[in-house]
């Protein structure tokens, strides 16, 4: 009787015996467009012979994931995504700053803006993504300035990301504050608020609403708007004349990465002009950080950028104060 029960269990246990170790792949958290992440995998394999595996998570999700895994990180490197979460991750000790060999060839203004917290990967500016069909149908002009967004004729035709939930939304809020000063910015926002049909959760959603014609004007990153327009939506990208804010997409080495060497090889590789040029081929039209990478012709080039103060507006205190003010003074206003 005993052996009748024993053998199956022994077999099961033998079957569970560990298999031999393989060559370690590089695990990447990937926050930009999925197509970009996918394009990296075969290219990296070809260049280094190493396997690259990734999970695509938006930058907020990626930060949440890094935090949850802080005790035993699963990922080696975090590629792309808006800068604020990269900076927070650095301040919380989730990532470490690694100075790549090509550091001095990266655009100096980007390097200066982020300091030594994370590696700048690309730059993208805020713009107006406009559905010209909807505007024409109503005989409305295109908005040219931030103040035009407060025009009564655009009532309920505007979408922008909620600064509470989207890094893009917060960048817009901080841009207005830097352009007009805090009090005037909030006055302007309270007038714009009446025109907003929806504050969206994610940063790229306004452009999709505009693409489908649910709204006429989306405020968001211009390069996402260009991508949607190229896919066939009736969209056009404009920049406000007063100047606009921008993000600096990041590349970070995860602290305690299980495959640190692989991660460093990846970082060095990912910053080369040839690899950065991959982005435009798969429809991501940010301005690459390496000075030698050609800027894709489709990339939207704003004429007028503000001097965005990442150090001030990236701190949790400032962020919290602005968001609280937005939640108290803007959101409850009737529309």
């Amino acid at each position: 009787m005993g052996s009748r029960y024993l053998w199956p269990w022994l077999l099961v246990l033998l079957g569970l015996a560990p298999v031999g170790a393989q060559q370690k792949p590089v695990n990447m958290l990937c926050s930009p467009d999925l197509a970009w992440c996918e394009a990296l995998v075969p290219a990296f394999k070809q260049a280094t012979g190493l396997d690259l595996r990734f999970v695509r998570l938006s930058s907020g999700e990626a930060l949440a994931r890094l935090r949850a895994e802080a005790q035993r990180p699963q990922f080696d490197v975090w590629f792309g995504g808006t800068g604020d979460p990269h900076m927070i991750a650095f301040r919380e000790g989730l990532t470490e700053f690694y100075k790549p060999r090509s550091w001095n060839q990266l655009r100096p203004e980007l390097r200066a803006a982020v300091g030594e917290t994370y590696i700048p990967l690309y730059m993208g500016a805020i713009g107006f993504v406009v559905n010209h069909q909807v505007l024409e149908r109503r005989g409305l002009p295109e908005p040219k300035r931030w103040t035009d967004l407060a025009d009564d004729r655009y009532r309920r035709l505007l979408a922008m990301p909620d600064p509470n939930t989207s890094g893009t939304g917060y960048t817009i809020l901080a841009t207005l504050v830097q352009l007009y000063g805090e009090d005037r910015a909030f006055q302007l926002l309270s007038r714009i608020h009446r025109n907003v049909a929806q504050y969206t959760r994610s940063g790229a959603a306004p452009g999709q609403l505009a693409g489908r014609g649910d709204v006429a004007i989306a405020v968001q990153f211009a390069h996402d708007g260009v991508k949607f327009a190229l896919e066939g939506y009736p969209l056009k990208v404009l920049f406000p004349l007063e100047g606009t804010g921008y993000e600096i997409g990041g590349l970070s080495l995860v602290k305690g990465a299980p495959n640190r060497e692989g991660a460093i090889r990846f970082i060095e590789w990912a910053l080369t002009p040839e690899v950065q040029a991959l982005a435009a081929k798969v429809g991501s039209f940010q301005i690459p950080s390496h000075t030698k990478t050609p800027v894709p012709p489709q990339a939207p080039r704003p004429a007028n950028l503000i001097r965005y103060d990442f150090n001030t507006f990236g701190t949790p205190e400032v962020r919290e104060r602005l968001l609280n003010r937005f939640n108290k003074e803007i959101l409850p206003l009737p529309r």
Binding site: G60, L63, A64, D162
Partner: peptide, 10 residues
């Protein structure tokens, strides 16, 4: 979800 991923506030 939004508190985790948008406001980074567990």
């Amino acid at each position: 979800f939004v508190a985790f991923t948008g406001r980074y506030d567990p």
